[in-house]
Design a protein around this nucleic acid. Structure first.
Lengths: 144, 144
DNA sequence: ATAAATGCAAAGGTTTTGCACCATT
DNA sequence: AATGGTGCAAAACCTTTGCATTTAT
């Protein structure tokens, strides 16, 4: 195993240790998948990427646990199933409403909006998370 | 029936006519519900509000039809089921991650973000819709 | 009269759960 | 040894679909 991969494994071990989750093969493999792929993935997709080595229920349970520990976040791409991505790489998505293609972007400029919103909110004084997704028709699908 | 309600019915008839959808009781009642309530609703909620007078499958079919005609829009509140709201009242939501309370806001300042994003996008040159939801703990739940 | 909408029942897809067994700490 | 994770099967949940009947135009 290369030095780089050793580093990667160490990072994943630390993530699970910090979260007080046991370092099981299913979790390690799942986190490896996420660290090599910045696209959001559904439980079913992860299940297939991992060659069905682990039960689908296990994948679901681990995704929930990792979300609770703030390691992964849910993303809604209007696809029928929930997708997850690594929490710390803050970015958003543009989804093609025709073919489903997903493109990432990161400059969401949300801070100003949040402070405006909070100054007028009756019920909230702090925002912890935000979800922003854009929808359009991609250039390929837009060609008639 | 008051003058005001007559006007409301006329508006709803016009909406359905313009969309080339038949003016059936199920649709009229559903649109009446939406026009008196700015909170997003799920199929199940509508079904119950309408005292189960119409089949749940009918509610689902009508919601789809109304969404296709751009009269309603989907909203994702991370609740397990899809919610809908009237399209023409552009606003977004702050959802309490503890109790599920929903508050609306409308000043999302998204235009600048969209034009920035498009100028750097490889696959998209136009955005048709955007989904923005904020998540936090409301003042009631935040009190320890 | 025609095309569309509805109700009912059944199925589809995604996600969750109970329980016995197994792995990590 | 003890706690937590897994696999399997079953169920729960949300949503869609087929078909016969009813309704709106």
């Amino acid at each position: 195993m290369s030095n780089k991969n050793v580093e990667k494994q160490k990072r994943i071990y630390k993530i699970l240790d910090d979260a007080e989750l046991k370092k099981t093969p299913a979790r390690i493999d799942t986190l490896n998948l996420f660290s090599g792929n910045c696209h959001p993935m559904s439980a079913e997709e992860i299940f297939k990427f991992l060659k069905k080595r682990y039960d689908l229920a296990t994948i679901y349970r681990n995704l929930s646990a990792l979300e609770e520990k703030k390691i992964l976040s849910k993303v809604n791409l209007r696809s029928g199933s929930v997708h997850y991505e690594v929490s710390n790489m803050h970015h958003h998505h543009i989804v093609c409403t025709s073919c489903g293609k997903v493109e990432e972007f990161s400059n969401c400029n949300i801070k100003r909006t949040i402070s405006n919103v909070l100054s007028e909110s009756k019920n909230f004084k702090k925002i912890d998370e935000h979800a922003l997704e854009l929808f359009g028709v991609c250039k390929t699908c837009g060609v008639k």
